[in-house]
Simulated assay, not measured.
Amino acid sequence: MTRERVIRLRRVYEAPEPGEDGVRVLVDRLWPRGLSKEAAGVDEWPKAVTPSAELRKWFHGGGSADEFRERYEAELAEPGAAAELSRLRGLADGGPLTLLTAVRDPAGSHAAILAEHLAG
């Protein structure tokens, strides 16, 4: 019997929830402003699965959400990111995995796209 992966999305500014969060993974390219490493409680920071600086700049310059998804998924298919996705799936197979981001709406962000790829 295969266990379903539990992948949570949370803001990195929210306090850790021991016993609920499992492995806490920061999925932003840049470290969150005004947050110490101790307060963040981040276990992993795999930059290979974060949106590239170029993609972030393009999106914040007015790019569409649909095209962002396409471009981000293309980045996730690159060898380094694909290997990191596989490793993170392995972590999720062992228990909860919480993807942390500084964005205000994690469910509407790149973290949700990443969660879909990890769940599959």
Rank of each mutant, 00 (worst) to 15 (best):
S86R: 14
L91F: 14
E54N: 13
L35W: 12
V25S: 04
E75H: 07
G94L: 15
H110E: 11
G63A: 02
L118G: 03
G61M: 06
P46I: 05
E75Y: 08
I113K: 07
A107Y: 10
G34N: 10
W45Y: 06
L85Y: 04
G63F: 03
W58V: 04
D43A: 12
A39R: 14
E73C: 08
A77S: 04
L76H: 00
T101F: 00
G62S: 01
L30E: 12
G80D: 15
P96K: 01
L114M: 08
L97K: 02
L30Y: 11
A53Q: 12
G94I: 15
V49K: 04
G95Y: 07
G41A: 09
L97G: 01
L76M: 11
A77W: 01
A83R: 13
A81R: 00
P51Y: 07
G34E: 09
D93Q: 14
S36Y: 06
D28M: 09
L55V: 11
H60Y: 11
L91N: 14
V49A: 12
E116M: 12
L118I: 11
D28Y: 01
K37Q: 13
L100A: 02
G62N: 03
V49L: 07
E75F: 11
E38K: 15
L99I: 05
F59E: 03
H60I: 08
V27E: 03
A102L: 06
D66K: 15
F68C: 08
R29D: 03
G61V: 03
G41K: 05
L26E: 00
A115L: 06
L114C: 00
R69T: 05
D66G: 15
A53F: 02
A111T: 12
W58D: 01
S64R: 15
L118Q: 03
L118D: 01
D105N: 13
A40C: 08
D105M: 12
W58L: 11
K57W: 08
E54M: 05
A102I: 11
S64D: 15
E84N: 11
E84Y: 13
G90L: 12
T50P: 01
P106V: 00
A74G: 07
R104H: 11
A112P: 06
R24V: 04
G90P: 14
E70N: 09
W45H: 12
L100H: 03
H60M: 09
F59S: 01
F59I: 06
A39Q: 13
E54V: 06
R69N: 06
A40M: 10
R29T: 02
R24L: 08
L97Q: 01
E84R: 10
S64P: 08
D43H: 14
G90N: 15
G108L: 15
D28P: 02
A102M: 10
V25L: 13
G41N: 09
G108T: 13
A119V: 13
F59T: 02
S52M: 02
E73V: 07
L114A: 00
G63V: 07
T50E: 10
H110N: 10
L26H: 01
